[in-house]
């Protein structure tokens, strides 16, 4: 079952074509990794899936992107609804300058949850879901900025979980973190795929092999190869994929 699909997706920044005719079907409740050298379009592609590209001036998207068979670029689409379904975690941890509790409760409050008891419940569940509850449960009222980088990133994951998304996009979510924090987040991703569809952009090929089920290799705005991760890393079909994963360029 495919949850997100693109057909003939083209994207321009001004006159600059950043994505060229991408066809992809992303399977549900799996981890899909997007790999490729810098500037290949993998982050751009990720951001078309929750329309965060709308924020970039002079961006133009053509082709079809569907989420659960609905065209998300159709006129009249409510992007807040889409972004609630398709959550996102960024490269640099970006907790709001508020308390840990208010960070998690921000999304639910926006979407209309008022009751204190329900918010408490959501905060606890989300923090547990992001495997950070035990570390912060005694200081929920403290500023989120007092946490370490790895904790901040897990807090951001918890914040994304709090609005009960369906899909979680992660844009190099571990590249700013130390190895221990990285492995904690990798373990977390593996656990989360039971309930969520996860799409990660990563520079780290070991990470892609460790945690992803499906893998997509981008080069210069084109999707070169897409398939099972194990298959791609053992027997790449395309010469360029082989060159990249064996470290001949990157």
């Amino acid at each position: 079952m495919d949850i997100l699909s693109t057909r003939g997706l083209d994207l321009w920044y001004g006159d600059n074509q950043a994505l060229k005719h991408i066809d992809m079907d992303i399977p549900e409740r799996q981890v899909t990794a997007l790999i490729g050298p810098s500037g290949c379009g993998k982050s751009t592609f990720l951001k078309t899936l929750n329309r965060m590209n709308d924020l970039v001036p002079a961006v133009r998207v053509e082709g079809l992107v569907t989420y659960r068979e609905r065209d998300i670029y159709a006129p009249g689409t409510d992007v807040t609804w889409l972004r609630r379904q398709v959550g996102m975690v960024f490269q640099k941890p970006n907790p709001f300058p508020m308390s840990i509790y208010d960070n998690i409760a921000y999304g639910p409050r926006i979407h209309g949850v008022r009751s204190k008891a329900r918010l408490d419940d959501i905060v606890e569940r989300s923090l547990k879901g992001a495997a950070i509850w035990d570390e912060v449960k005694d200081r929920l009222k403290k500023s989120a900025l007092s946490l370490s980088g790895g904790q901040q990133q897990r807090l951001c994951i918890a914040r994304a979980l709090a609005v009960e998304p369906d899909v979680l996009l992660m844009d190099e979510a571990t590249s700013a973190l130390d190895p221990i924090s990285t492995s904690k987040i990798e373990d977390l991703i593996t656990e989360l795929k039971e309930h969520y569809t996860i799409i990660i952009v990563t520079h780290n090929m070991q990470q892609a092999t460790r945690i992803s089920d499906t893998c997509a290799f981008f080069l210069l705005g084109e999707l070169i190869e897409f398939g099972q991760t194990t298959q791609m890393f053992s027997m790449p079909r395309d010469k360029r994929t082989e060159d990249y994963i064996t470290g001949r360029f990157g």
Binding site: M52, M88, F90, N94, F96, Y106, G107
Partner: peptide, 17 residues
Amino acid sequence: PREYEEASLALGATETE
């Protein structure tokens, strides 16, 4: 910082929110 606003939008908040 732009990141704060992006995080909020990515959670499904409107621009004014």
